[in-house]
Design a protein around this nucleic acid. Structure first.
Lengths: 212, 212
DNA sequence: GCAGTAATTATGCAAGTGTATAATTACCAG
DNA sequence: CTGGTAATTATACACTTGCATAATTACTGC
């Protein structure tokens, strides 16, 4: 019954980094950034805590890497569906809104992560930069889609007004996304994208309902 | 140069409780719930840490009290302006939207608090209850205002549609509120309420611009 | 003034924190 | 199968955390 040293398996550097990042993200979502302690992360990744320092300069480093990983993941999720669609501009706008308001983009863990990271994002310049870039990217894509759809419908739109439309649509989408993630049981499965399309359509002045 | 015991002044129980709550809220906004340590709270309230235990059973207790305090404060801020207005239903709706998208409701600290408390709200049943109540209250008030304004305009609206309208308007307002608090410098002072009124108006099908 | 008492401070403690460093051991080249 | 070495575990340390308890002291009623 002697104390035995723990057995282990060597993994590729990439796999280990990813496992550590995934564990960190889970814990940040559940307990906030400060709740994601090195020991908790190590345990969830089924590893001892010393290993974290072997792959990351510091815990801070791991957290930043995890944040960046998550953000680019989210970008990929909304970028894919709309950009590779070959239909009309209106169709691409519809696809973009729908993708943003359906799983896996709408997801309790993502919402929790967003909230948990907010204060770190506001204090840490490196994180702030990542955030600003992602946010601007999302809104610019939305603005471009709106512009194209309006153009297609023969409605030239001035830049200032276009900006307001993009801000407003972004806000509805954000708001719905947030509520869908924060209160998963409060909405029917396809209620969110439906409301989103109606609202975005009403704001920009286009009918985005499928029927047409 | 001997170590002297710290001088102090006795304050009323109410004042001390409030000072501790205010300090706690500031720190939660800045560093998250776990970053609001008893020592940091005590220091900010200009008091030694032992005093916290004298006014609250535990740190947990103080945090819950602070959350409740903040939430009722927010409710008061949006409730006041719209309810005591004696104009048309449309005017009350306009006032409600404007109040929700202007300081002091739009405020970086409030947004940070919302984010910091989210995971605690999702895990702790007591906090979850407070949150659900406040959220439902806000949306119900919004729905009632929309119903009244539509009714006033001679447009009877069915319950299901009314719910969707309220969800959508709530989402725009939430989204704008959030972005206004998270990126205070990204918007002109009156840009948010302006966009909010245009969007809510577009969604429900009423012109909420001041001119009329 | 002067006790009494509750508000406040001071101190101590066990558990948890990030990080540094030493000790092992799984895998690879030969 | 046999070193060599990097991946991994183990241990230690200084510091922070929430809480409990003891020591003081500012105010109140007389």
């Amino acid at each position: 019954m002697s104390e035995e040293r723990r057995k282990f398996k060597r993994e590729s550097a990439e796999a280990r980094r990813e496992a550590l990042i995934r564990a960190a993200l889970e814990l940040v979502a559940e307990h906030g950034v400060r709740g994601a302690t090195v020991r908790a992360i190590a345990e969830r990744a089924d590893v001892t805590q010393g290993l974290i320092r072997h792959y990351f300069r510091s815990k801070e480093d791991l957290i930043t890497a995890a944040y960046e990983h998550h953000m680019t993941h989210m970008t990929d999720l909304t970028e894919g569906p709309a950009s590779q669609l070959r239909g009309t501009a209106r169709d691409r706008l519809v696809a973009f809104v729908e993708a943003s308001l359906t799983a896996p983009v709408v997801d309790p863990q993502s919402t929790a992560l967003w909230a948990s990271f907010l204060n770190k994002v506001q204090n840490d310049p490196a994180m702030k930069a990542i955030h600003a870039r992602t946010y601007a990217d999302f809104r610019n894509r939305l603005e471009a889609l709106i512009a194209a759809a309006l153009d297609e419908a023969g409605q030239a739109t001035e830049a200032g007004r276009l900006r307001h439309l993009a801000i407003a649509c972004n806000a509805v989408i954000d708001g719905l996304w947030l509520e869908g993630g924060a209160l998963p049981d409060a909405f029917e499965p396809d209620e969110l994208p439906k409301i989103g399309l109606t609202s975005v359509g009403a704001i920009v002045g286009l009918n985005l309902t499928h029927s047409s």
